[in-house]
Design a protein around this nucleic acid. Structure first.
Lengths: 138, 138
DNA sequence: CCTTACGTTTACGTAAACGTAAAGTGAGAG
DNA sequence: CTCTCACTTTACGTTTACGTAAACGTAAGG
């Protein structure tokens, strides 16, 4: 292996509009996430260069949004994934944050399940009602 | 049974601040929900009088909020519970609305479950890390 | 060189979900 | 009658999560 050759292949990168299209966001939104500290792409000249790591973060961001979290809440959540080099006091904080979030998510899980039960009952009622009227086609 | 006696007992009612306290909301918020058509209390003079039905609706509203729905979205959702006297075209619409919502909730269910998996893994890592440092007390 | 395409910063605009202050109403206590 | 207290309406203020317009940089293509 020649001297100084990088072990990892040339990492694939993305422009802001590639990310935007992939996630169905606008560039404006992605820059906003940067302002809020959710993404920190490097610069090449003045242009932003995104890596596969930013891609992964965006996936988490989208999931957080579907779950109804605020951007600030999502940032806190993303920080939990950065456990690598934390010191003990910081770790204790992370642990308690993670556990808080687990608790609210478990509440949310119950809410979703109960709402699904409700909605499926409604669905049954409506289907039934339509059947009695012989209007169940389509 | 005496003439004209009501079959149902005198229904229990609530003032706005009773509801506010019970659900940890402000009266302002509850009036706002009325402006948006989520609640329609009757009036006694100028005062709002809430019944057990409004109580039930508020429970659904709170659940909707925990799930991250918008107020307008929650209103649509509440309307689904009013299936009683709908006509066939309206029912078809209700059915499709309910099914749409079921779909997004099932996505949300998957999101919550996956996030819980992630977070519990993080929790495990952190606990582990703290253990190796012999800092697991408290 | 000019245009086109994509990127950038700066900055004001907007919708949603309330907060908050101002000013008035009605019923009961003293 | 006055005071208080809870309730009311009206209306402007605030935060979040972007949209949108202006003005500019830069590289590629004709």
């Amino acid at each position: 292996m020649p001297d100084g050759a990088p072990v990892t292949a040339v990492e694939e990168t993305y422009t802001i509009s590639q990310l935007a299209e992939a996630f169905e966001l606008t560039p404006r939104t992605i820059r906003y996430y940067e302002d809020e500290g959710l993404l920190t792409p490097r610069r090449e000249g003045q242009q932003r260069v995104y890596t596969h790591r930013d891609w992964a973060r965006l996936k988490l961001i989208m999931r957080g949004k579907r779950l109804g979290f605020t951007i600030a809440g999502i940032k806190d959540f993303l920080d939990l994934y950065e456990v690598g080099d934390a010191q003990v006091p910081q770790m204790r904080f992370l642990l308690s944050s993670a556990r808080d979030r687990i608790a609210t998510l478990e509440q949310q899980l119950r809410d979703v399940q109960q709402t699904l039960v409700d909605l499926k009952e409604i669905e049954g009622l409506v289907v039934d009602h339509l059947a009695r009227k012989g209007a169940l086609d389509a």
